[in-house]
Design a binder for these strands. Structure first.
Lengths: 209, 209
DNA sequence: AGAGGCACTAAACATCTGTTCAGTCTATTG
DNA sequence: CAATAGACTGAACAGATGTTTAGTGCCTCT
């Protein structure tokens, strides 16, 4: 009964899964290094020694959580509706991926700013998706010289920026950033920016130089 | 002589400053929590006890480093040339701030993804700058309905995104992301995006829906 | 029923952490 | 010259960390 005090994870799961879920939540909240194996075990209502027993090491636990998260992200990406308007699909993907689960969001935020192989793999995958989306976009809109080198990165910055900056952005807003309504508004703004720039649709003033 | 082994910080500084500089470098490299007070002291060629003597605690050391960094960022922002083309100023600011010093860049990356007061203050400051720049931009270009709510955040995402994502973006590029040439190219791409969107200047196809 | 394996535990381990302590050295001040 | 102050030191402290160990109970298979 010693470790059962703060059992916040539903207990109808195998011990291994309980540990992994608790770790996902705690890593997302506090980060990997700031979360002790004891804290994970306590949150799962289990003994710290089980972390080693099931995953070999704390690092092994992280790997298991990474794998789990990558799986969920992959599923979210696959489920995203890419049949309709190509431009709207961009918003749909980001909404599906990030809007849903604050825990997943927090964990992704942590992962994306590490130098681990997992983070590199995740970003490479996102980049590939952005390039594909952009190709479809170019084909659909019949556009000329899109900036092929930087456009995918720009797209990702617009989508991932709010994810990464959530902790510092949120205090400057009056509504929850990832509320579906707010997210939809931001997504629409992103589509407008990608299509026409910051200014009105058919505007091309004399500019500087 | 015990602590003088790996003295990588120039020693013509007061002990306090040596510690602060070493901490800045190590915090930027590994993060605050992953850097021990002993490691900072060793890098400065001093005794760990001096961290407490000079800054009261490790947290005090962080505060001192934060203050130092915020000062440098403020100076960079002040020095940025805002006299010429308003749009180009955006690129100039980011170049001045982030291009210069990889250590400063790493530290900013760490700070921007915390929930500390320092990070909130820094972002609020950047947001204010973005809004001001955007106002000048709107005035200069004579534009209509710029998306006032999200535009400043979009601008910041385009500028800060590469900073935050550097560790995962760099492996997908063949040249150093913050090399002046590359940075200039990205900055130009950002200006094009903000002005005209992803597609050609005078392009406004029939669109979906 | 007995044997083997698996989930699980408490307790201890070595190590690392931030911090404290008592004292030395040096430079300034009266 | 004596005294004070402050930079600086090695050694030690209490606590937390990841991990190990030895052992207990349960479930399954023969």
């Amino acid at each position: 009964m010693a470790y059962g005090a703060d059992m916040t994870v539903s207990s109808d799961l195998t011990g291994r899964a309980r540990l992994r879920e608790a770790a996902l939540r705690l890593f997302a909240e506090r980060g990997f290094e700031a979360t002790s194996a004891r804290a994970v075990a306590a949150a799962a209502g289990l003994s710290p020694a089980l972390v080693i027993h099931h995953f070999g090491s704390k690092e092994g636990l992280r790997a298991a959580v990474d794998e789990e998260v990558l799986g969920r992200v992959g599923a979210a990406l696959r489920d995203a509706d890419t049949s309709g308007d190509a431009m709207a699909a961009v918003g749909a993907v980001s909404a599906r991926m990030f809007g849903a689960d604050p825990v997943l969001r927090g964990y992704l935020r942590r992962v994306l700013q590490e130098e681990s192989p997992a983070s590199a793999a995740l970003f490479a995958r996102l980049l590939h998706g952005a390039r594909a989306e952009l190709d479809r976009l170019v084909a659909a809109e019949g556009a000329d010289a899109v900036d092929v080198e930087w456009a995918p990165f720009q797209m990702l910055c617009l989508i991932l920026g709010p994810l990464l900056l959530e902790p510092v952005m949120q205090p400057n807003l009056d509504r929850p950033m990832f509320d579906p309504r707010v997210l939809a508004g931001r997504s629409a703004a992103n589509q407008r920016l990608l299509r026409h720039g910051l200014f009105g649709p058919a505007r091309d003033p004399a500019g500087g130089t």
